[in-house]
């Protein structure tokens, strides 16, 4: 077993939104800083660095987690998804993103990537949520602009749309 020494930069490789990426990180480097400043995917934002605001929510191996509560070196070999991976390659917004757009579910947009990543994960596992479910599912993401009402509406609308889409397939 290898001990990665402090004050040295170690190679970290993982899959980011389906593409292999790599960079160098000291053991203590947070995954947020690595994704943003080493890889350059700045869509994931940093809001509190103690796991409460949810702005940095990403998916690691298909599960929504706080990127500020992970070390970059812990991402080695993982499959990571961030907000940049949500839209189609041609830029077409996903059903969830489009619902956010239609519903005025973002204002400054700083917390939005975290909400989107939480909801992508939640709706995948809970395709038919009630409003109360959505509110509890979102209780780990802080937004100070919208008052959440339109975010909750967007989430419910997206859930219905995703359901209808998968039913028609």
């Amino acid at each position: 077993m290898q001990v990665l020494k402090q004050s040295e930069r170690h190679r970290v490789r993982f899959t980011l939104n389906g593409e292999r990426v790599e960079g160098l990180a000291e053991p203590r480097m947070l995954l947020t800083d690595f994704i943003r400043h080493e890889i350059g995917a700045t869509g994931t934002h940093v809001g509190c660095e103690h796991g409460i605001c949810g702005a940095c929510t990403i998916r690691v191996n298909g599960k929504a987690v706080r990127a500020c509560l992970m070390l970059a070196v812990q991402a080695e070999g993982k499959e990571i998804e961030t907000v940049e991976g949500l839209a189609a390659k041609d830029g077409t917004l996903s059903a969830l993103q489009a619902a956010f757009h239609r519903n005025f579910a973002l204002q400054c947009g700083y917390c939005t990537p975290g909400f989107l990543m939480s909801l992508v994960d939640y709706l995948e596992k809970n395709p038919n949520p009630t409003e109360a479910d959505i509110r509890i599912a979102l209780s780990g993401n802080l937004c100070r602009c919208t008052g959440y009402a339109e975010i909750v509406n967007a989430a419910l609308e997206a859930a219905r749309e995703i359901q209808a889409l998968s039913a028609s397939k």
Binding site: M1, L4, Q6, E26, P27, R28, L30, D33, L71, V73
Partner: peptide, 9 residues
């Protein structure tokens, strides 16, 4: 940001 440490997986 954390202080320095070694890391072992």
């Amino acid at each position: 940001k954390p202080a320095n440490f070694d890391y072992a997986r």
